[in-house]
């Protein structure tokens, strides 16, 4: 994704709040088209060509608008000008990330709880993990743990005002994340070859959907990572590395979730 990201010039302008942005509207239009397209795939097949076309159109509008939002300069209002209990020392964005993660905990909690509920109803001991081989999962655990570590390296490099270090650490994170996804792709493909599909039974359903949700979180994180790399390339985060920290929070969270999913779906 080659986007020219303006970055280092936004310091030193006097604080003026912005009030206009067209991108939330455009993103939503993209989402609307995407969902209309998706609805056509009820029971897996689309009744007409209109649905796939709408789906792709929606995806394009959505992606374009997200890029637009990402590169737009926008000054939000300040926080912490008085009472801020219990978040006095945590700025707005970080508070927001923490709160979002709290909701994500419930999301994953519901997915994991559901998987456990179904397994208990099925008979806990009658249930064997879907993948016959634990090695790809184990490899992925190490890949994610390492990538969490490289995010910390990026933060350290930023504190030392080492632009090169930030970029390299983030690229390493990206590569490790891609490695995770490729490894998972190979594993899934292997399972598909052996006739395990989402709809095969309730066991494969929980396996693919729960780890798939986690995979979607990884993909989301990597997209943010690409955006960070672009900005870091232009010298961002040396003065103000908080955004790296926020990304780190999210990325560690995704990592921790995997530490729950791995034993549940590969070992137990």
């Amino acid at each position: 994704m080659e986007v020219n990201l303006p970055m280092s010039d936004e310091i030193a302008t006097p604080h003026v709040e912005t009030h206009a942005s067209i991108w939330p509207f455009c993103i939503s239009i993209g989402v609307l088209f995407f969902l209309i397209g998706l609805s056509g795939y009820t029971q897996g097949n689309s009744p007409s060509l209109i649905y796939p076309v709408t789906l792709i159109l929606g995806l394009l509008v959505f992606s374009g608008s997200m890029i637009g939002l990402g590169v737009q300069r926008f000054e939000g209002p300040e926080g912490g000008f008085g009472e801020a209990w219990p978040f006095q020392n945590i700025e707005n964005m970080k508070t927001g990330v923490w709160i979002f993660l709290a909701s994500d905990v419930v999301l994953f909690g519901a997915f994991i709880g559901t998987a456990i509920f179904i397994r208990v109803a099925y008979g806990w001991t009658d249930w064997t993990p879907v993948p016959d081989d634990v090695i790809p999962g184990l490899m992925n655990t190490y890949l994610l743990l390492t990538s969490s570590f490289t995010v910390i390296l990026a933060l350290v490099a930023a504190e030392r005002k080492n632009r090169y270090g930030v970029v390299v650490s983030l690229i390493t994170t990206l590569l490790l994340g891609i490695g995770f996804l490729v490894n998972k792709g190979i594993e899934w493909n292997h399972l598909f070859q052996h006739g395990y599909w989402l709809s095969t039974n309730v066991k494969t359903s929980t396996f693919f959907l729960t780890t798939g949700l986690h995979g979607a979180h990884v993909i989301g994180g990597l997209i943010i990572c690409i955006w960070l790399i672009g900005r870091a390339w232009n010298g961002a985060y040396l003065e103000d590395n908080r955004v790296l920290e926020y990304f780190g929070l999210y990325w560690h969270f995704v990592d921790i979730v995997w530490l729950f999913l791995f034993p549940l779906f590969y070992i137990l």
Binding site: L38, G44, L198, S199, S205, F208
Partner: peptide, 9 residues
């Protein structure tokens, strides 16, 4: 997912 991908929850 049950409606579109055919999972069986």
């Amino acid at each position: 997912s049950d409606r579109i991908l055919g999972t069986t929850y």
